[in-house]
């Protein structure tokens, strides 16, 4: 079983959802971003989504854009990302890289897979790479025994849900709303519907796979709500916020603790 799936299953064994924290490498600088990731783990994150800075982050809202822009200008690259992967693994969480496709392609798809596996990374989430275009990545991730997480969206047809979940390993990333990353006042109804449809698609394949929900979760109460219907809760913008506000790793730790309480207070029936 994949490292990601194993960790999510372990959370399930504790009757809770897994907490997945996103932080970009290089904001406010590489060392401080790694310290923030470690703080997120100490605060209770099970998995850290390690963001590769990219100049054109089309799926991200203003908060994450502002942070990655600093990292891009500082020349942060895959070497720094791999260092973050090692640090997160050493802190006891499962590291998974989140990258737009061009930085991976530029680094070299096979080289990326080999180096990521060597650094202890579980795999990668690719927000602008759909399975239809992922031939090279599917081959490289198979060869390196890495997980690969593709996204599903409320607009995905049932046929696309089926083909996407077949291509996934580790978990399926359900993008809860139509839109970009950012905190929202309420969790969209669309999220629960999407998780249900995705689970049906997974059932069709006959191979179990967790479904984690991202986009818009910012506090413990919302995490509890999502934990009521999803296997994992992915939080991004809210983790970046304390860094932008100058609260540093301590602010990240406090947020992680709040969210970790949330995923243990599942609002609805466990899935």
């Amino acid at each position: 079983m994949s490292a990601l799936q194993q960790r999510i299953a372990a959370a399930h064994g504790e009757d809770r959802a897994a907490l997945i924290a996103y932080l970009p490498v290089g904001y406010p600088d590489v060392d401080a971003s790694i310290a923030a990731m470690v703080a997120a783990v100490e605060g209770g994150a099970d998995i850290v989504e390690i963001g590769v800075p990219y100049s054109d982050p089309g799926m991200d809202g203003p908060v994450i854009q502002e942070a990655v822009d600093v990292a891009v200008r500082a020349g942060v690259g895959m070497r720094d990302v791999l260092r973050a992967v090692e640090a997160v693994a050493a802190a006891g969480a499962v590291p998974v890289v989140m990258s737009y496709w061009n930085p991976v392609e530029r680094y070299g798809v096979d080289r990326f897979a080999t180096d990521l596996a060597a650094a202890g990374g579980a795999g990668a989430i690719t927000p602008d790479l759909i399975p239809d275009e992922a031939g090279a990545w599917i081959a490289a991730s198979d060869a390196a025994a890495l997980d690969r997480v593709f996204l599903v969206a409320p607009s995905s047809t049932d046929a696309r849900l089926r083909s996407t979940v077949r291509a996934c390993r580790g978990f399926v990333y359900a993008a809860s709303t139509m839109g970009v990353t950012g905190t929202r006042a309420t969790v969209s109804d669309a999220a629960e519907r999407l998780v249900g449809r995705t689970r049906e698609a997974i059932a069709d394949t006959g191979v179990p796979l967790p479904v984690c929900v991202g986009l818009g979760v910012s506090n413990g109460d919302q995490a509890a709500e999502v934990a009521g219907f999803a296997d994992g809760v992915i939080v991004g913008t809210a983790y970046v916020r304390p860094l932008l506000d100058g609260e540093g790793a301590e602010g990240v730790r406090r947020l992680s603790e709040d969210l970790a309480r949330g995923v243990r207070q599942r609002a609805g029936a466990p899935a």
Binding site: I130, L151, R160, A175
Partner: peptide, 12 residues
């Protein structure tokens, strides 16, 4: 060419 976009845009 191809399509390198978030899944959310594929339907559109």
């Amino acid at each position: 060419g191809g399509r390198f976009v978030p899944e959310a845009l594929i339907a559109a």
